[in-house]
Design a protein around this nucleic acid. Structure first.
Lengths: 227, 227
DNA sequence: TGTACATCAGTGAACGCGCGTTCACTGATGTAC
DNA sequence: TGTACATCAGTGAACGCGCGTTCACTGATGTAC
C-alpha cells in the first residue's frame, strides 16, 4: 500500500489536477505562445468548466508564473545533475557539461526555453518568486569559475570594466579578476546566442549541423575562459 | 513647387497613410507584443474604421510581414552605413562597428529587435520575401571575414566541423577555413546573446553597465576572430 | 474646358468567434465530537 | 461508530470586453474624350 500522502486523498487529487492543468498549459505554449495562453482552452482540454481553473490558480498570470518557475527549476536540475557527475577539478569538463546540457534541454523543451529565455511576455511582470529559481543556472556556472580561480583573491577593481561588472564581482567576493569575469560572461552570452539562433531559425542555410557546431563552441569556450 | 510624385496625389496620400499605419503598429508592438498586434486598435488610434485598414494591408499577417521587412532593412542600413565608414583594411574596426551598431540599434528599437530576433510570433510563418532583407546583416559580417582571409583558398573541408558548417562554407566559396568560420559564428552568436540577455532582463544584478561590457566584448571578439 | 465614367478610400453594421473573471449554486469529501 | 457541520471542487450562466474579416454602400478623386 502506498504511503498516505500528507493531507489525505483530497490533497493528492488536488496536486494531480494542478499538474494536469500545468501540463495542458505547457502543451498550449507550443502552438500558441505564452502571450495567448488561454485558461478557457485549458479547461476545454481538461473537460471542465473554465471557472474551475480558479480553484487552482487565482489568475492567468499566476499560472504563467508557475510555469516559469517550473521551467527554471527543471533546467537547473538537469544542469546541476550533469555538472555534478564531473570530477571537481575538471573545470573545463564541468563547463562543457553545463553548456551542452543547457542546449539539449532547450532542444527537448523549446516552449519552456522560449518562456524563460525568449522575449518576455508583454504585460506580464515576473514576481519576485521567480528570481531564486532563475539564478540557479548562472550560479552553477559562476561556481565553476570561482573554483578555477581559487588561489587568487583581489581587491575591488576600479577600472571601467571592473565597475561595469560590479554586481557580479561583488557577488563572487572579488575572487575572479574583471577580465576573466568578462570572458565568462561572453561565454554565457554565446551559449544563449547559439541556442537562440538555432531555435529561432536563424541558422537556416548557414549552420547545417547545429549540434556539432555547439559542441565545438563549448570546448572552444572552455579553453578560452578556464585555466 | 515640389515634384509631382509618380502616380499623383492619391498615390502620395496612400503611401503616407501606409506609413502611418505601420508607425501605429510599431507603437503597439511596444506595449502589446507582436502576437497581440490588433488591427482594430491601430484603426482606433488613427481615427478610422477598422475595415479601412484592409485598403492598405490584405490581412494582419501581411502587416506583420511589412513590419518585419522594414525592421530588417532598417538594421541593415544602419549597420552598412557604420561599417562603410571604416578603412577597408581595418577588418577589426569594421567588425566592431557592425557589432556596436547592432546593439545600439537594438537599444533604440527594442520592439523591432524583438520582432526579428526574438521568439518568433506563434502561428505566423514568415513568407519568402523576408529572406533577402534578413540576410543583409549576416552578409555584411561574412564579407569582412572573407576579406580578411583573402589570400587563402581551400577545398571543401570534409571534417565533422566542415560538414556541420557546409552551407555557409559553400556560400563563401570555401575561402574561409572551417575553424575560422566556427569562431566567427561563435562571435555572431555572442553578439546576439549579449543583446538578448541585456534586453530581456537577464543582466539584472550581474552586469551593471551593459554598454561597457558590450564594447569590451566586441573588441575581444575582433581580436579573437580576425587576423 | 467640360462632361461621363471608372476607380478608389473610407464607412458602419454585421458575423462569428474568443477571452478572463465573478457569482450563486450543488454536491461530495473531510473533520470534530 | 455515527452524526452534524464545515470545507472545498466543480458547475453553468453571465458580464463586458476584444478580435479579424466581409460586405454593401457613399462620396470623392482621377481619367478619357
Amino acid at each position: 500500500m502506498p504511503e498516505k500522502p500528507a493531507g489525505g486523498v483530497r490533497a493528492r487529487v488536488r496536486a494531480e489536477l494542478t499538474a494536469e492543468i500545468k501540463a495542458a498549459a505547457r502543451r498550449q505554449l507550443a502552438t500558441e505562445g505564452a502571450s495567448s495562453l488561454s485558461l478557457r482552452a485549458i479547461a476545454r482540454e481538461l473537460g471542465m468548466a473554465s471557472s474551475a481553473i480558479y480553484r487552482y490558480f487565482a489568475s492567468r498570470d499566476e499560472l504563467l508564473t508557475a510555469l516559469i518557475i517550473d521551467a527554471y527549476e527543471d533546467v537547473a536540475s538537469h544542469i546541476e545533475a550533469a555538472e555534478s557527475q564531473c570530477e571537481r577539478a575538471d573545470h573545463r569538463g564541468r563547463f562543457v557539461a553545463i553548456a551542452t546540457t543547457l542546449r539539449s534541454w532547450a532542444v527537448a523543451n523549446p516552449n519552456e526555453y522560449a518562456l524563460i529565455y525568449g522575449t518576455p511576455v508583454p504585460g506580464y511582470a515576473a514576481p519576485t518568486d521567480t528570481i531564486d529559481p532563475a539564478t540557479r543556472v548562472p550560479i552553477t556556472l559562476l561556481t565553476v569559475l570561482v573554483e578555477s580561480h581559487v588561489s587568487e583573491t583581489s581587491e575591488p577593481d576600479e577600472s571601467d570594466l571592473g565597475q561595469a561588472l560590479a554586481d557580479v564581482l561583488v557577488f563572487t567576493n572579488h575572487s575572479v579578476p574583471a577580465d576573466a569575469m568578462a570572458l565568462a560572461i561572453e561565454a554565457w552570452a554565446e551559449i544563449f546566442g547559439l541556442i537562440n539562433l538555432e531555435m529561432f531559425g536563424h541558422f537556416k542555410n548557414a549552420v547545417t549541423n547545429p549540434s556539432v557546431m555547439f559542441n565545438h563552441a563549448a570546448n572552444s569556450m572552455a579553453e578560452r575562459i578556464l585555466p
